[in-house]
Simulated assay, not measured.
Amino acid sequence: MSQASGSPDHGIDRVLDRTVVLGYSRLGFAIRRRGWAEGDPRRGALTGRTAIVTGGAGGLGEATVLGLARLGARVHVLVRSPERAAPAVARIERLLRREGLVPDLRVEHCDVSDPAMIDAFADDFCAREDGSTALDVLVHNAGVMPPERTESVDGHELSVATHVLGPIRLTERLLPALRRSERGARVVFVASGGMYTQPLPVGDPEFEHGTYQGAVAYARSKRMQVELAPILDRRWSPDRISTSVMHPGWADTPGLARSLPAFRTSTRLLLRTPEAGADTSVWLAATDPAPPSGAFWHDRRQRPTSYRASTHPGDGETEKLWRWAAAAAGLERP
Rank of each mutant, 00 (worst) to 15 (best):
A4V: 10
S5P: 02
G6Q: 06
S7L: 07
D9C: 10
L22N: 04
S25G: 06
L27N: 01
A30V: 09
R33Q: 13
E38N: 02
R42N: 01
G44I: 03
A45I: 06
T47M: 12
R49Q: 15
G55Y: 08
G59V: 05
L60A: 07
R70S: 05
R74L: 05
L78T: 03
R80I: 12
S81T: 11
P82N: 10
A88F: 06
V89Y: 02
I92R: 05
I92D: 03
I92P: 05
L96R: 08
E99H: 06
G100S: 00
P103H: 09
D104Y: 01
D104I: 02
V107R: 07
D124C: 02
F125W: 10
A127S: 15
T133C: 11
L135A: 05
V139C: 04
H140L: 11
H140D: 04
M145P: 01
T150F: 08
V153Q: 11
G155E: 07
I168Q: 05
R169N: 06
L170F: 13
L175A: 11
L175K: 06
R179L: 10
R180G: 03
S181R: 05
V187D: 07
E206M: 09
Y212G: 12
R223K: 15
Q225R: 10
R240W: 10
H247K: 12
W250N: 14
D252P: 08
P254R: 10
R258T: 13
L260P: 00
F263C: 01
R264K: 15
T265Q: 15
L269D: 05
L271I: 05
T273A: 12
D279G: 08
W283L: 00
L284Q: 10
L284A: 01
A295T: 03
R301Q: 13
S306E: 14
G316H: 14
W324T: 09
A326S: 14
A327N: 08
R333P: 00
P334I: 12
